[in-house]
């Protein structure tokens, strides 16, 4: 039988300083990118939000013979559309995305209702494309237009719903294990989302609604990974009552290591296929998952477990400091701990 790991004995928790440093550096990089981009006037925004969240229009045009971006821009200029971004579709030679920012104020005042703004842009683009002549053969194959109010609502809803889902996760894990476990898992998930968003800020990949679906997927994977380790810790705590939580956690990570690597490796393969063959529409989605799978696997071992052990030890030290101040907190803690979570 092929076996990836035989009797591994890695001191994962001993490397926690390196892990935490790496995580903090990654998160800071994203944060600095976001803040710097936001702060520099006239530059790009913290995140490259798609029309879903920012408002505006995207028109997908398919050509028989695609003219150059300059020719298209000149035609749009003549039709009075000046702020268009023209973006060729990378994996399809004959398609172009024309992006129009939201015109007018965000409030949608009486004189210029939002729907009219979006429509005028689209109608003008259609007219401008006609001037390119029949050999170009332009055809509008898709339109997306989102008003600024709807964009804001979609963004707020996505964030609120995700937070609610995380609370659900926290409560369930707290019920099945202990609340420190739940908190550690949720902190790890936060870490994953922040690091992934950091990449999106640094590389200015566009964030659309499908990216939100990808973030939700990575939350699922990350929690899944963390629970597998925690479950093993719970089981080992019951089997080896005399061991310290520190050692048990290390052992549990090592015991589940081949499972972690195989599962993550398989999912990673599927996501790689998505990145390579999934096409433009799925691009943001695939990239978010690509980063997310790596970060999510890493965080179960390098973030969730150390935080849980640290927190649990602090709690135990705190509890045992009053009656017997010189007791070894780890061993005593683990023993008490094992009784308190023997509920599965």
């Amino acid at each position: 039988m092929i076996q990836l790991f035989k009797d591994v004995n890695i001191d994962w928790l001993g490397k926690r300083r390196i892990f935490i440093t790496a995580s903090v550096v990654l998160m800071l990089a994203g944060l600095i990118s976001a803040i710097a981009r936001q702060a520099v006037p006239g530059g790009t925004d913290a995140f490259n939000l798609g029309v879903d969240f920012k408002g505006g229009s995207v028109i997908t045009v398919k050509f028989k013979q695609r003219p150059s971006a300059e020719v298209i821009r000149a035609a749009l200029d003549r039709a009075g559309v000046h702020e268009a971004v023209i973006q060729p579709v990378t994996d399809k030679q004959d398609e172009v995305l024309i992006k129009l920012p939201q015109m007018g104020s965000a409030g949608g005042s009486e004189a210029t209702p939002e729907h009219a703004q979006v429509d005028i842009g689209r109608v003008r683009v259609a007219e401008a494309l006609k001037t390119l002549g029949p050999e170009a053969g332009p055809e509008i194959v898709g339109t997306e237009a989102v008003g600024p109010i709807a964009g804001r609502a979609l963004r707020n809803q996505a964030v609120a719903v995700t937070l609610l889902a995380l609370v659900g996760i926290l409560v369930y894990i707290a019920m099945r294990f202990e609340w420190t476990y739940g908190a550690a898992a949720v902190i790890a998930v936060f870490h994953d989302v922040l690091v992934t968003l950091g990449f999106f800020s640094i590389f200015q990949w566009e964030i659309s609604l499908t990216v939100i679906a990808a973030l939700l997927t990575l939350v699922g994977f990350s929690v899944n990974d963390t629970i597998v380790v925690f479950d093993r810790i719970r089981e080992n705590l019951r089997l080896h009552r005399r061991e310290s939580l520190y050692k048990i956690t290390n052992d549990s990570i090592n015991q589940t290591l081949s499972r972690t690597v195989i599962t993550s490796g398989l999912v990673f393969l599927s996501v790689l296929a998505l990145v390579l063959f999934g096409g433009e529409v799925l691009r943001g989605f695939s990239l978010a998952l690509f980063i997310g799978i790596i970060v999510g696997t890493y965080s179960s071992i390098a973030v969730a477990s150390p935080i849980m052990v640290w927190w649990q030890q602090r709690l135990e030290a705190h509890r045992s400091s009053a009656p017997e101040s010189d007791a070894r907190p780890q061993t005593a803690g683990a023993a008490r701990h094992s009784r308190s979570i023997g509920r599965s």
Partner: peptide, 14 residues
């Protein structure tokens, strides 16, 4: 009155 907040049109080929 009605206002449009969102419009998405996807052509069958897309």
């Amino acid at each position: 009155p009605l206002v449009y907040l969102e419009e998405r049109t996807v052509g069958p080929s897309l």
